[in-house]
Design a binder for these strands. Structure first.
Length: 295
DNA sequence: CGCCAGGGATCTT
DNA sequence: AAGATCCATGGC
């Protein structure tokens, strides 16, 4: 695949953090709310480099979306020191990065993620965009932008069900309503620290500990957030348990109660420190690779 | 057919 | 505070 030390486009896009990307004729297209992002690999002197474009035009969007302002070398260096597992897989999957999404799109996306698999999450979000987003024509290609809150709020429950959302349709309707009414304050969500922002996020219907952590990490610059999903739990049961959760008071069940989540989350975040989120993304990617992900 | 998927809300013990 | 159940849906 095409990559370098600082950014592996392929693994970063296919690591279950940002669902609205697709590859057409070896070119990547991403939906960034109202904007279509484009990444073209260019063969240049026997090396691959990338050309970034977008419509409507956003100058240097890749700096923000791929977080190129993070000091990647230092982050990898920092988390590598924490244990041998993470040292190994940061080497192995070097170039994997966290992306920075738009908060609203990220909230809706991870509302769709509950008890679900990634191909279906993608399908649901594409359906939502096709039905309630704006159609964009760009150089002969057709795209659908991500719907606005107003756009989604105008949808009937039947229409949402037709997008394949299932029981999550109600979560999305309630969440969109609370944001539009300002029962939940997006200013707090966007400006507050990890703890305060998470508390506010969890007022949203359908947002619990795990989904809140995803939103914090992938759209709100909280690099110390460490989402614990079913795959991470499996990993913890195997061997991280010995490193992190050596105390017998913590038993790891296949499903975590809110309290167990809090206890384990604290231990792990203490262990990996302020870049816990990067560590999590490497761990998640490695276990999905090991299990032969099909997307 | 049963089980699982980047879980959470709700009710029960 | 932990456990059980249900939620809608497609892939295997």
């Amino acid at each position: 695949m095409f990559h370098n030390n600082q950014l592996n486009i392929y693994s970063t896009i296919n690591s279950g953090q940002y669902f609205l990307w697709e590859n057409r004729q070896n070119i990547w297209y991403g939906i960034y709310e109202d904007t279509v992002l484009k990444i073209s690999p260019i063969l240049d002197n026997n090396r691959i480099r990338y050309e970034y474009d977008s419509f409507p035009k956003i100058e240097d969007w890749e700096q923000s979306v791929f977080r190129l302002d993070d000091n990647y070398d230092q982050i990898i260096n920092e988390i590598s020191k924490k244990d041998l597992t993470i040292e190994k897989i940061t080497k192995q999957y070097r170039g994997l990065r966290i992306m920075r999404q738009k908060p609203i799109q990220c909230i809706i996306s991870f509302l769709c993620s509950s008890n679900n698999n990634i191909p279906r999450i993608r399908l649901m979000l594409r359906n939502l965009s096709r039905v309630f987003g704006k159609t964009i024509e760009w150089k002969g290609d057709t795209f659908h932008t991500f719907p606005t809150l107003a756009g989604i709020s105008s949808a009937s429950q039947a229409e949402l069900l037709q997008c394949g959302l299932g029981y999550r349709a109600v979560y999305i309707q309630n969440t969109v309503k609370s944001i539009l009414n300002q029962d939940v304050d997006m200013k707090i969500i966007e400006k507050a620290n990890y703890t305060e922002s998470k508390l506010e996020l969890m007022k949203l219907c359908g947002v619990g500990e795990k989904i809140a952590d995803c939103i914090l990490l992938f759209s709100l610059d909280k690099l110390d957030a460490f989402p614990i999903d079913t795959w991470i739990v499996k990993l913890l049961q195997e061997y991280l348990n010995n490193i992190l959760v050596a105390s017998p008071d913590v038993k790891i069940n296949s499903k975590l109660s809110p309290n167990q989540y809090k206890v384990i989350s604290k231990k792990i975040r203490d262990h990996y420190g302020k870049y816990s989120g990067y560590a999590q993304q490497f761990l998640y990617y490695s276990i999905r690779e090991r299990n032969g992900r099909k997307w």
